[in-house]
């Protein structure tokens, strides 16, 4: 039985000629990574024992063994990160496995033109992530204190009888909530659009719930940007500027990066 091939990333073959692959340990911590040339593309891989790493056994560990997942997720990330410091890398998803080199070669060859296009897109660029959080209480005070729609409604309610006031106040709370969401989106989107102008590309990812991040507040925005290396400092300064302006209104902006270009080299 062939050894399995774990694929970390793809690099332009000409870059491999300029700089050798550094010694990096593979997924099971024993063998080193090595390269498989496939035409003008080079695959960076390691081998795995198919008996230890069957589809079933990996699935089981991913779903039941959080510590294993954590360790291997960090391994995958750190390995691809190390590669991306040296080469232009198309990073692969966690646990992309092939049964033998031929199967890997076929998969790469059938996507060759997509990959060459992606190398061109991401070369000399970095991927950056921005997560924005907002303390609803602070913003709510502002919204409910300065919003003309809400002001008018409040005025209207004060003229009503006590019984009616109760229900109308409930409705008003709902109105404030929806105005708050609108306000949050407006602020986030403005920042996003401006950052997108400073980047080559920008996208919106799914925002996380408070339960997942263990924060008090839901994530208001999760943005990802492909930024030219020479423009990264300017890009981050802009984020810092926004953070300063918005902090007193309860906003927190968290940038992370540089990431291998996971988001922007995805094609399928």
């Amino acid at each position: 039985m062939d050894r399995l091939i774990y694929l970390y990333g793809l690099i332009p073959r000409k870059e491999e000629g300029q700089q050798p692959l550094p010694p990096l340990k593979g997924f099971d911590g024993t063998d080193n990574l090595y390269t498989i040339p496939i035409g003008d593309i080079t695959a960076v891989v390691c081998q795995l024992d198919p008996e230890k790493y069957s589809e079933e056994s990996i699935k089981e560990r991913v779903n039941d063994d959080m510590e294993w997942l954590q360790e291997k997720a960090f391994h995958h990330h750190e390995t691809v990160m190390a590669l991306s410091k040296i080469f232009t890398v198309i990073p692969l998803k966690f646990c992309t496995l092939y049964k033998n080199p031929d199967s890997l070669k076929r998969a790469v060859q059938s996507n060759r033109s997509n990959m060459l296009y992606t190398f061109d897109l991401i070369a000399g660029h970095e991927e950056w992530n921005l997560k924005m959080y907002c303390n609803d209480q602070l913003l709510k005070k502002q919204v409910s204190g300065s919003n003309p729609v809400i002001e008018a409604k409040r005025e209207e309610i004060s003229q009503l009888s006590k019984g009616k006031q109760f229900f109308e106040k409930k409705k008003l709370d709902k109105l404030i909530e929806s105005q708050l969401e609108e306000e949050k989106n407006k602020i986030s989107e403005n920042i996003h659009l401006h950052l997108k102008e400073l980047a080559r590309k920008g996208d919106v990812k799914k925002a996380w719930s408070a339960a997942a991040t263990a924060r008090k507040e839901d994530m208001a925005w999760n943005g990802v940007y492909l930024v030219e290396k020479s423009k990264v400092e300017r890009f981050l300064e802009q984020i810092q500027q926004y953070e300063k302006e918005l902090r007193e209104n309860g906003w927190q902006l968290e940038a992370s990066g540089p990431w291998p270009a996971y988001h922007f080299s995805s094609f399928s």
């Binding site: 997720a73 646990c95 992309t96 496995l97 992370s256 990431w259 995805s266 399928s268």
Partner: peptide, 22 residues
């Protein structure tokens, strides 16, 4: 870790693989 999972599980090239780990 959430940032890493957000990136390596969610995205990354979905090249047709032999073993599919969903």
């Amino acid at each position: 870790l959430i940032d890493i999972l957000d990136v390596i599980l969610d995205k990354g090239v979905a090249l047709k693989a032999d073993l599919v780990i969903s």
